[in-house]
């Protein structure tokens, strides 16, 4: 065998410790800003800005886009969630780099082809994007953020996310196991 420098990725953090860290970040967000974390909202802003640049009349005539475009006084991208998600991108990369986990790969079980996995990824993402808009947030913006302040809708939402995933898991077993 040729000599190769193989870097073994570091093991993951203890889940309870990682949860404590994540909870403290969420708490800090509430303490400093009075609001929690999020993700899907930033993608809505980006989508609205993209559509607005291609078809401005269409975007401003749509109640969904126009809500994310704001009043035109400042760029809609100067948005709290947009900056937060940019931070997530940076924070994830820094952590991954320190742990030796930044590596090009396709994550899947052994029994499914790459092309199929990527089609499933797009399709799952579409369901998530659509569902998150209906639910006013995703796992970050509703489940975590709303969960911590005991928001009724967030808890109902969270139960349904877990329920939906467990109900459908059987049909997806070839992708993961």
């Amino acid at each position: 065998m040729s000599e190769k420098l193989v870097k073994t990725p570091k093991p993951y953090m203890n889940p309870y410790l990682a949860g404590l860290g994540l909870g403290l970040v969420l708490l800090m967000s509430y303490v400093i800003m009075g609001r929690g974390l999020g993700a899907s909202g930033a993608f809505s802003t980006a989508t609205a800005v993209a559509i607005n640049s291609v078809a401005p009349a269409h975007a401003t005539g749509n109640n969904f886009y126009s809500e994310y475009l704001g009043d035109g006084q400042q760029s809609p991208l100067k948005d709290w969630l947009v900056f937060e998600v940019l931070g997530v991108l940076v924070g994830g990369f820094i952590s991954g780099m320190f742990a030796g986990r930044v590596k090009k790969s396709i994550e899947k079980g052994p029994r499914i082809a790459n092309s199929k996995r990527l089609i499933f990824a797009v399709f799952g993402g579409m369901l998530m994007g659509f569902g998150a808009k209906l639910a006013r947030g995703c796992t970050s913006g509703q489940a975590l953020t709303g969960g911590a302040i005991l928001n009724l809708g967030s808890w109902a939402f969270m139960m349904c996310v877990f329920g939906g995933a467990y109900m459908f898991a059987y049909f997806m077993r070839r992708q993961w196991l």
């Binding site: 974390l37 999020g38 993700a39 899907s40 993608f43 998600v85 997530v88 991108l89 940076v90 924070g91 994830g92 990369f93 991954g96 986990r101 930044v102 590596k103 090009k104 790969s105 994550e107 899947k108 499933f120 990824a121 797009v122 399709f123 799952g124 993402g125 579409m126 369901l127 998530m128 994007g129 659509f130 569902g131 998150a132 808009k133 209906l134 639910a135 006013r136 995703c138 796992t139 970050s140 109902a156 939402f157 969270m158 139960m159 349904c160 996310v161 877990f162 329920g163 939906g164 995933a165 467990y166 109900m167 459908f168 898991a169 997806m172 992708q175 993961w176």
Partner: peptide
């Protein structure tokens, strides 16, 4: 309804919006 869609989308797609950003940043 949105929660159920997210749940099904989670097990099909493998991520949620926030975790997919982290996964993108690590390749």
């Amino acid at each position: 309804v949105g929660g159920l869609m997210l749940g099904v989308g989670f097990v099909i797609g493998g991520y949620c919006p926030g975790t997919s950003v982290v996964a993108c940043s690590t390749g």
